[in-house]
Design a protein around this nucleic acid. Structure first.
Lengths: 106, 106
DNA sequence: ACAATACGTTAGCCATCGCTAACGCATTTG
DNA sequence: CAAATGCGTTAGCGATGGCTAACGTATTGT
């Protein structure tokens, strides 16, 4: 049970999840959006599946991947747990300060 | 300019950011919360600094690290950009389905 | 049956990562 | 002044990561 956040952090896998957000896709379809081999995409999908973020069903000779909502929910909760109230506060203060600076532009 | 999300994903660095959320801390103070060497922590802090997530000021012979609010804000925006409306919808549906199942418990 | 398609799997390469051990540099303390 | 403290830096090691090339396996089309 690998760390979902760690699995989702890799740039290629992030894009894969975003592509799958619009609906189920085949491996070749997904691979066509990347400069790397289909094999590489297949391995990335394997990592995502192992982390519980995607599932796949076989349909004829194609394998169709889709997002696993429950896995994504646990990813969501883990990121929410990271953004503690203190961190949120810091970010909010930074945003307020930035807008103050902007309003001082000459 | 390394990928902020990738830099923040590493477990030790995540905890470092959470520790720093409660306020500025010295390197030794931070290192005391981990099973690894102070050198390792120092290098992790270097990665976080390079990603713009933390800053440090020298105070006597101690170096005090704190969260860089603007860097954390960009991390925040990048995670928000990841959670597209489609992904949010999937997670929300999963939560609704889960509660439906729970209410069917015997 | 045979070729083509849509995959997964594996070996192997090279880069990166996290880490420790050892050292060096400034700063404070005695 | 010398010793101690608080750090950064570096070399080097083992492990992991992402990738390609090559091959194996179902499944479909002709």
């Amino acid at each position: 049970m690998p760390d979902v956040l760690y699995a989702a952090a890799e740039p290629t896998r992030r894009r894969l999840l975003q592509l799958l957000a619009s609906g189920p896709r085949t491996v070749s379809d997904l691979a066509s959006h990347f400069p790397v081999t289909r094999s590489a995409i297949s391995q990335h999908l394997g990592v995502l599946a192992e982390a519980g973020l995607v599932v796949n069903r076989k349909e004829g000779r194609r394998r169709i991947y889709s997002v696993d909502p429950s896995g994504m929910a646990s990813l969501r909760s883990e990121t929410d747990r990271f953004w503690s109230s203190e961190l949120d506060q810091l970010v909010a203060d930074a945003a307020a300060l930035a807008s103050t600076i902007r309003s001082n532009d000459s």
